[in-house]
């Protein structure tokens, strides 16, 4: 109860500080409107159909990208994680591809797949595949050998070992990867919309609002909504993870 009260004090304190800084003139109001105005704009925008459509476009692209990433990275991770020579052979390529900042590919992707929703989905997938892939490989390498030996001693077949021993063990790690990827995918979707000027989406909304220069309240409202979406996604996944993997204490510890 007391911590909830402190949470509120912190949030309200931040808004008051911001409001005060603008009112006193520390920050020019034209550039950074006070929170009261931003909140009013946010509420107003949430009642407007075009804005809602932008939000939906962004969330939809994010969801598709995350699904595709999971569909690619989990099987790939299981394969690389259980076949050592394949993992060794591909390690170099993976190690060289991963650090390429995904946004560096924006110009290329725009050329190849055009400016439609495919572009942001492609880029988000490229960025979101890695955490899931690495956490899956890591999970398989971390399986307790005793567990595997026990299963083998019980005469479990290779296929059944994967489904009944390896997968349940890997699940919490994979889920941690999905959580990291979810955040990255959202950043990429919004960034691509913003940089490339997609037909619709939150990033595009912010781009258009900022190009006039005088609609900073709308820019910030868009930012607040983007932040809220990100917060809800992260919080939701965290809750799901806690419910699904109650039996596993290391869930969330597989940062790699």
């Amino acid at each position: 109860m007391r911590s909830l009260y402190r949470n509120l004090v912190g949030l309200i304190g931040f808004f008051l500080l911001w409001e005060g800084a603008v009112r006193v003139g520390l920050v020019p109001e034209l550039f950074v409107p006070p929170p009261s105005e931003v909140l009013a704009t946010t509420v107003g925008l949430l009642g407007q159909e075009p804005f809602i459509r932008d939000v939906i476009a962004t969330v939809l692209a994010w969801a598709i990208a995350l699904l595709i990433s999971v569909a690619i990275a989990v099987p790939a991770g299981l394969l690389l994680g259980s076949v050592p020579w394949l993992r060794n052979a591909t390690r170099v390529i993976v190690e060289f591809l991963r650090p390429i900042p995904s946004v560096a590919l924006i110009p290329l992707v725009l050329l190849v797949v055009g400016g439609g929703p495919e572009a942001k989905i492609t880029l988000a997938v490229y960025a979101a595949v890695w955490p899931i892939l690495f956490n899956t490989i890591y999970a398989l390498s971390e399986i307790d050998p005793v567990l595997m030996d026990t299963a083998r001693a019980c005469g479990t077949s290779r296929g059944r070992m994967l489904t009944s021993v390896a997968l349940p063990h890997a699940a919490p790690f994979v889920f941690t990867g999905v959580r990291m990827s979810a955040a990255i995918a959202l950043i990429l979707v919004v960034s691509t919309e913003y940089v490339a000027g997609a037909a619709s989406g939150l990033g595009n909304f912010i781009l258009e609002a900022s190009s006039g220069g005088s609609n900073m309240d709308e820019v910030l409202a868009g930012t607040v909504v983007a932040g809220l979406i990100g917060y809800l996604i992260n919080d939701g996944l965290e809750r799901i993870g806690k419910r699904a993997f109650r039996w596993n204490e290391v869930a969330g510890e597989a940062a790699k």
Binding site: R6, V9, G10, S210, V219, T223, G230, Y231, D235
Partner: peptide, 20 residues
């Protein structure tokens, strides 16, 4: 005091703050 605020800040895709 600042936990929820920071969780929110972290969730904001940073490029959206470029205009600001």
């Amino acid at each position: 005091y600042v936990g929820p605020l920071f969780a929110f800040f972290r969730a904001i895709p940073p490029p959206t703050l470029v205009p600001v």
